[in-house]
Amino acid sequence: MKLMIVDDSSIIRNRIARISRHVDLAKLEIDIVGQASNGKEAVDLFVKAHPDIVTMDLTMPEMDGVECTKALAYMNPAVRILVISALSDKSTALKALKNGASGFLYKPFNDEQLISALESLVN
């Protein structure tokens, strides 16, 4: 499974990358193929790296998470996108899900929560 991480915070990106390399996840054979800090970068990277799963922040500069989700799902309807956001406004998250995302995880999250979400996403 090829994973792409999209988040404007490098701290969050590194954290997701670190947890994704967690030993339990080795069974899922997740291979991080790229990290993007905004929607536009994510779209460019998506075309090159063809990830199977994507973690997606919602509030980002250039192109936000909802638009980016829409674009990625249009390019590959089979891609599984996990929205990770600190939004208190649930309706934006619902919008991302309506536009092709498969799941949602609240920020802040702990290691177990992210692992369990990724497992659900892959299975």
Binding site: S91, L105, L121
Partner: peptide, 29 residues
């Protein structure tokens, strides 16, 4: 009415196939 819109969206998502049920419970309006 806001609750109503969110509720309809949420239920429609659950009837769709691409969303993982256990990954959207936290969004239940």
């Amino acid at each position: 009415s806001e609750t109503l819109v969110s509720a309809r969206d949420y239920i429609e998502l659950l009837f769709g196939n691409h969303v993982k049920e256990n990954l959207i419970i936290s969004l239940n309006p």
